[in-house]
Amino acid sequence: MLLGTIVYAIINSVILIMMSIGFNLTFGISGISNFAYGALYIFSAFSTYMLLQMVGLPYPVAALVSIVLTAAIGALMYRFILMRVRGQVLSEVIATFGIGLAILEFFRYLGFVGVEYALPVFIDDSFMIGEVYVDAQRLIIVASSVVLVGLLWLFVHYTSVGLAFRGIAQDERTALTFGMDSDWIATLSVSLGAALAAIAATVIIPLGTISVSQGYDVLINALAVSIIGGLGSTGGVIVASLVVGFAQRFTDTYIGSHWTMIVSLAAILLVLVIKPSGLYGKQKELEERI
Protein backbone atom coordinates (compact mmCIF):
# COMPACT_ATOMS: atom_id res chain seq x y z
CA MET A 1 0.00 0.00 0.00
CA LEU A 2 2.83 2.36 0.85
CA LEU A 3 4.61 1.66 -2.42
CA GLY A 4 1.40 2.19 -4.34
CA THR A 5 0.79 5.48 -2.58
CA ILE A 6 4.30 6.64 -3.36
CA VAL A 7 4.05 5.65 -7.03
CA TYR A 8 0.73 7.41 -7.43
CA ALA A 9 1.99 10.42 -5.45
CA ILE A 10 4.83 10.77 -7.92
CA ILE A 11 2.40 10.53 -10.82
CA ASN A 12 0.12 13.06 -9.16
CA SER A 13 3.07 15.41 -8.68
CA VAL A 14 4.10 15.05 -12.29
CA ILE A 15 0.57 15.89 -13.40
CA LEU A 16 0.74 19.03 -11.27
CA ILE A 17 4.07 19.95 -12.83
CA MET A 18 2.60 19.54 -16.31
CA MET A 19 -0.43 21.61 -15.39
CA SER A 20 1.48 24.53 -13.96
CA ILE A 21 4.77 24.77 -15.80
CA GLY A 22 3.34 26.79 -18.69
CA PHE A 23 1.64 29.32 -16.45
CA ASN A 24 4.82 29.78 -14.49
CA LEU A 25 7.03 30.03 -17.54
CA THR A 26 4.95 32.82 -19.06
CA PHE A 27 5.08 34.72 -15.81
CA GLY A 28 8.78 34.12 -15.38
CA ILE A 29 9.61 35.54 -18.77
CA SER A 30 7.22 38.40 -19.33
CA GLY A 31 5.58 38.95 -15.98
CA ILE A 32 2.17 38.22 -17.47
CA SER A 33 -0.10 36.08 -15.36
CA ASN A 34 -2.28 34.28 -17.81
CA PHE A 35 -5.57 33.60 -16.06
CA ALA A 36 -6.90 32.12 -19.30
CA TYR A 37 -4.49 29.23 -18.78
CA GLY A 38 -7.10 26.69 -17.69
CA ALA A 39 -9.34 27.70 -20.57
CA LEU A 40 -6.53 27.11 -23.06
CA TYR A 41 -6.01 23.66 -21.55
CA ILE A 42 -9.66 22.79 -22.10
CA PHE A 43 -9.71 24.45 -25.51
CA SER A 44 -6.91 22.21 -26.67
CA ALA A 45 -8.69 19.11 -25.34
CA PHE A 46 -11.96 19.95 -27.10
CA SER A 47 -10.12 20.87 -30.25
CA THR A 48 -8.39 17.48 -30.31
CA TYR A 49 -11.73 15.82 -29.64
CA MET A 50 -13.41 17.62 -32.51
CA LEU A 51 -10.59 17.03 -34.96
CA LEU A 52 -10.62 13.38 -33.98
CA GLN A 53 -14.36 12.73 -33.92
CA MET A 54 -15.79 15.21 -36.41
CA VAL A 55 -13.01 15.79 -38.92
CA GLY A 56 -11.60 12.32 -38.58
CA LEU A 57 -7.91 13.15 -38.42
CA PRO A 58 -5.55 10.52 -37.04
CA TYR A 59 -4.97 10.94 -33.29
CA PRO A 60 -1.35 12.17 -33.34
CA VAL A 61 -2.13 14.68 -36.09
CA ALA A 62 -5.21 15.95 -34.25
CA ALA A 63 -3.20 16.39 -31.05
CA LEU A 64 -0.40 18.19 -32.84
CA VAL A 65 -2.78 20.51 -34.69
CA SER A 66 -4.49 21.34 -31.40
CA ILE A 67 -1.22 22.20 -29.72
CA VAL A 68 -0.27 24.49 -32.59
CA LEU A 69 -3.74 26.02 -32.59
CA THR A 70 -3.62 26.69 -28.84
CA ALA A 71 -0.20 28.26 -29.16
CA ALA A 72 -1.55 30.47 -31.94
CA ILE A 73 -4.45 31.56 -29.76
CA GLY A 74 -2.00 32.46 -27.02
CA ALA A 75 -0.01 34.57 -29.47
CA LEU A 76 -3.12 36.28 -30.84
CA MET A 77 -4.34 36.94 -27.33
CA TYR A 78 -1.16 38.82 -26.59
CA ARG A 79 -0.97 40.66 -29.90
CA PHE A 80 -4.53 41.92 -29.99
CA ILE A 81 -5.46 42.31 -26.35
CA LEU A 82 -2.65 42.08 -23.83
CA MET A 83 -0.23 44.26 -25.76
CA ARG A 84 -2.58 47.19 -25.36
CA VAL A 85 -2.68 46.91 -21.60
CA ARG A 86 0.90 45.75 -21.06
CA GLY A 87 2.37 46.75 -17.75
CA GLN A 88 -0.93 47.47 -16.06
CA VAL A 89 -1.34 44.50 -13.75
CA LEU A 90 -5.00 45.21 -13.09
CA SER A 91 -5.90 45.24 -16.75
CA GLU A 92 -3.77 42.22 -17.61
CA VAL A 93 -5.36 40.16 -14.88
CA ILE A 94 -8.89 41.16 -15.78
CA ALA A 95 -8.38 40.80 -19.53
CA THR A 96 -6.89 37.31 -19.33
CA PHE A 97 -9.47 36.27 -16.79
CA GLY A 98 -12.26 37.58 -19.02
CA ILE A 99 -10.90 35.70 -22.02
CA GLY A 100 -10.64 32.48 -20.04
CA LEU A 101 -14.13 32.88 -18.70
CA ALA A 102 -15.56 33.54 -22.15
CA ILE A 103 -13.84 30.48 -23.65
CA LEU A 104 -14.83 28.09 -20.88
CA GLU A 105 -18.41 29.22 -20.54
CA PHE A 106 -18.82 29.21 -24.30
CA PHE A 107 -17.98 25.52 -24.36
CA ARG A 108 -20.45 24.94 -21.57
CA TYR A 109 -23.08 26.88 -23.50
CA LEU A 110 -22.45 24.82 -26.64
CA GLY A 111 -23.31 21.77 -24.58
CA PHE A 112 -19.92 20.16 -24.30
CA VAL A 113 -20.84 18.39 -21.09
CA GLY A 114 -20.93 14.68 -20.57
CA VAL A 115 -18.89 11.51 -20.31
CA GLU A 116 -18.77 11.01 -24.07
CA TYR A 117 -16.29 13.87 -24.31
CA ALA A 118 -13.11 11.96 -23.72
CA LEU A 119 -9.89 11.23 -25.52
CA PRO A 120 -8.56 7.72 -26.04
CA VAL A 121 -5.43 6.64 -24.19
CA PHE A 122 -2.27 6.40 -26.30
CA ILE A 123 -1.51 2.78 -25.49
CA ASP A 124 -4.06 0.61 -23.74
CA ASP A 125 -1.81 -1.42 -21.52
CA SER A 126 -0.59 -1.54 -17.97
CA PHE A 127 2.53 -2.48 -16.14
CA MET A 128 3.57 -3.70 -12.75
CA ILE A 129 5.95 -1.63 -10.68
CA GLY A 130 6.72 -3.88 -7.76
CA GLU A 131 3.21 -4.84 -6.74
CA VAL A 132 1.54 -1.77 -8.15
CA TYR A 133 -0.46 -1.67 -11.35
CA VAL A 134 0.26 1.42 -13.41
CA ASP A 135 -1.35 1.99 -16.77
CA ALA A 136 0.67 3.01 -19.78
CA GLN A 137 -0.89 6.47 -20.02
CA ARG A 138 0.40 7.46 -16.60
CA LEU A 139 3.87 6.29 -17.51
CA ILE A 140 3.62 8.31 -20.70
CA ILE A 141 2.75 11.37 -18.63
CA VAL A 142 5.79 10.88 -16.44
CA ALA A 143 8.07 10.24 -19.41
CA SER A 144 6.78 13.18 -21.40
CA SER A 145 7.10 15.54 -18.47
CA VAL A 146 10.72 14.50 -17.93
CA VAL A 147 11.41 15.04 -21.63
CA LEU A 148 9.54 18.35 -21.60
CA VAL A 149 11.35 19.78 -18.59
CA GLY A 150 14.65 18.65 -20.10
CA LEU A 151 13.89 20.23 -23.45
CA LEU A 152 12.79 23.45 -21.80
CA TRP A 153 15.99 23.60 -19.84
CA LEU A 154 18.08 23.09 -22.97
CA PHE A 155 15.96 25.60 -24.87
CA VAL A 156 16.30 28.32 -22.27
CA HIS A 157 20.01 27.77 -21.71
CA TYR A 158 21.31 27.03 -25.18
CA THR A 159 19.21 28.70 -27.85
CA SER A 160 19.27 32.37 -28.73
CA VAL A 161 15.54 32.78 -28.18
CA GLY A 162 15.89 31.06 -24.83
CA LEU A 163 18.73 33.34 -23.85
CA ALA A 164 16.63 36.31 -24.90
CA PHE A 165 13.89 34.99 -22.62
CA ARG A 166 16.31 34.95 -19.73
CA GLY A 167 17.55 38.40 -20.61
CA ILE A 168 14.06 39.87 -20.63
CA ALA A 169 13.20 38.04 -17.45
CA GLN A 170 16.18 39.48 -15.63
CA ASP A 171 16.09 43.05 -16.75
CA GLU A 172 13.66 44.19 -19.37
CA ARG A 173 15.16 47.65 -19.84
CA THR A 174 18.69 46.45 -20.34
CA ALA A 175 17.44 43.78 -22.71
CA LEU A 176 15.70 46.47 -24.74
CA THR A 177 18.94 48.37 -25.16
CA PHE A 178 20.47 45.24 -26.68
CA GLY A 179 17.85 45.33 -29.37
CA MET A 180 15.58 42.59 -28.06
CA ASP A 181 11.99 43.07 -29.08
CA SER A 182 10.18 42.88 -25.79
CA ASP A 183 6.74 42.51 -27.38
CA TRP A 184 7.93 39.70 -29.61
CA ILE A 185 9.44 37.87 -26.65
CA ALA A 186 6.25 38.39 -24.62
CA THR A 187 4.17 37.04 -27.52
CA LEU A 188 6.36 33.98 -27.62
CA SER A 189 6.18 33.57 -23.86
CA VAL A 190 2.37 33.59 -23.79
CA SER A 191 2.28 31.35 -26.83
CA LEU A 192 4.77 28.91 -25.34
CA GLY A 193 2.80 28.85 -22.10
CA ALA A 194 -0.36 28.08 -24.08
CA ALA A 195 1.42 25.32 -25.98
CA LEU A 196 2.55 23.79 -22.69
CA ALA A 197 -1.04 23.88 -21.45
CA ALA A 198 -2.08 22.10 -24.65
CA ILE A 199 0.64 19.47 -24.31
CA ALA A 200 -0.41 18.88 -20.71
CA ALA A 201 -4.02 18.47 -21.85
CA THR A 202 -3.02 16.07 -24.58
CA VAL A 203 -1.28 13.65 -22.24
CA ILE A 204 -3.42 14.10 -19.12
CA ILE A 205 -6.97 14.26 -20.50
CA PRO A 206 -7.03 10.60 -21.68
CA LEU A 207 -7.06 9.62 -17.97
CA GLY A 208 -10.59 10.97 -17.61
CA THR A 209 -13.14 13.02 -19.47
CA ILE A 210 -13.07 16.57 -20.75
CA SER A 211 -15.18 18.91 -18.66
CA VAL A 212 -15.45 22.66 -18.45
CA SER A 213 -15.04 22.70 -14.69
CA GLN A 214 -11.66 21.08 -15.16
CA GLY A 215 -10.56 24.33 -16.77
CA TYR A 216 -11.05 26.05 -13.45
CA ASP A 217 -9.37 23.16 -11.62
CA VAL A 218 -6.30 23.41 -13.81
CA LEU A 219 -6.10 27.14 -13.15
CA ILE A 220 -6.50 26.60 -9.40
CA ASN A 221 -3.78 23.94 -9.43
CA ALA A 222 -1.45 26.07 -11.51
CA LEU A 223 -1.97 29.03 -9.19
CA ALA A 224 -1.60 26.94 -6.05
CA VAL A 225 1.63 25.36 -7.24
CA SER A 226 2.99 28.70 -8.41
CA ILE A 227 2.16 30.40 -5.13
CA ILE A 228 3.79 27.64 -3.12
CA GLY A 229 6.81 27.27 -5.37
CA GLY A 230 7.28 30.93 -6.10
CA LEU A 231 6.07 32.72 -9.21
CA GLY A 232 8.37 32.45 -12.17
CA SER A 233 10.62 29.77 -10.75
CA THR A 234 10.66 26.46 -12.64
CA GLY A 235 12.55 24.74 -9.83
CA GLY A 236 9.89 26.03 -7.47
CA VAL A 237 7.15 24.49 -9.62
CA ILE A 238 8.79 21.11 -9.46
CA VAL A 239 9.38 21.18 -5.71
CA ALA A 240 5.92 22.60 -4.98
CA SER A 241 4.28 19.99 -7.22
CA LEU A 242 6.06 17.25 -5.33
CA VAL A 243 5.04 18.72 -1.99
CA VAL A 244 1.41 19.18 -2.98
CA GLY A 245 1.26 15.95 -4.97
CA PHE A 246 2.56 13.85 -2.10
CA ALA A 247 0.51 15.66 0.51
CA GLN A 248 -2.67 15.16 -1.52
CA ARG A 249 -2.07 11.49 -2.24
CA PHE A 250 -1.10 10.63 1.31
CA THR A 251 -4.09 12.41 2.83
CA ASP A 252 -6.24 10.67 0.26
CA THR A 253 -4.95 7.26 1.29
CA TYR A 254 -4.53 7.66 5.02
CA ILE A 255 -7.06 10.28 6.05
CA GLY A 256 -9.77 10.50 3.44
CA SER A 257 -10.24 11.89 -0.02
CA HIS A 258 -12.36 14.82 1.09
CA TRP A 259 -9.41 16.24 3.00
CA THR A 260 -7.19 16.72 -0.05
CA MET A 261 -8.54 20.18 -0.87
CA ILE A 262 -8.10 21.26 2.73
CA VAL A 263 -4.52 20.10 2.60
CA SER A 264 -3.84 22.17 -0.52
CA LEU A 265 -5.51 25.21 0.99
CA ALA A 266 -3.60 24.78 4.23
CA ALA A 267 -0.35 24.38 2.29
CA ILE A 268 -0.95 27.65 0.47
CA LEU A 269 -1.82 29.59 3.59
CA LEU A 270 1.10 28.08 5.48
CA VAL A 271 3.62 28.94 2.77
CA LEU A 272 2.22 32.45 2.52
CA VAL A 273 2.60 32.96 6.25
CA ILE A 274 6.14 31.60 6.44
CA LYS A 275 7.59 32.75 3.14
CA PRO A 276 5.13 34.90 1.20
CA SER A 277 7.07 34.91 -2.05
CA GLY A 278 6.96 31.11 -2.20
CA LEU A 279 9.62 28.48 -1.56
CA TYR A 280 11.81 29.59 -4.46
CA GLY A 281 10.24 32.97 -5.15
CA LYS A 282 12.32 35.43 -7.08
CA GLN A 283 10.00 38.23 -6.13
CA LYS A 284 11.48 39.88 -3.10
CA GLU A 285 9.01 41.21 -0.64
CA LEU A 286 9.85 44.85 -0.87
CA GLU A 287 13.53 45.30 -0.58
CA GLU A 288 15.88 45.50 -3.51
CA ARG A 289 13.17 46.82 -5.76
CA ILE A 290 14.01 50.45 -5.21
Partner: peptide, 20 residues
Protein backbone atom coordinates in the same frame (compact mmCIF):
# COMPACT_ATOMS: atom_id res chain seq x y z
CA UNK B 1 0.00 37.09 4.55
CA UNK B 2 -0.56 38.16 0.94
CA UNK B 3 -0.55 41.83 1.83
CA UNK B 4 3.20 41.77 2.16
CA UNK B 5 3.55 41.11 -1.56
CA UNK B 6 2.93 43.36 -4.49
CA UNK B 7 1.41 42.51 -7.81
CA UNK B 8 -0.65 39.54 -8.82
CA UNK B 9 -0.33 37.47 -5.66
CA UNK B 10 -3.38 39.08 -4.13
CA UNK B 11 -5.43 38.31 -7.25
CA UNK B 12 -4.25 34.73 -7.38
CA UNK B 13 -4.95 34.00 -3.75
CA UNK B 14 -8.34 35.70 -3.69
CA UNK B 15 -9.34 33.75 -6.79
CA UNK B 16 -8.53 30.33 -5.42
CA UNK B 17 -9.58 30.63 -1.78
CA UNK B 18 -13.37 30.82 -2.37
CA UNK B 19 -13.19 28.04 -4.96
CA UNK B 20 -11.28 25.89 -2.51
Amino acid sequence: PVLRLRGVYFSMVTLIIPLM
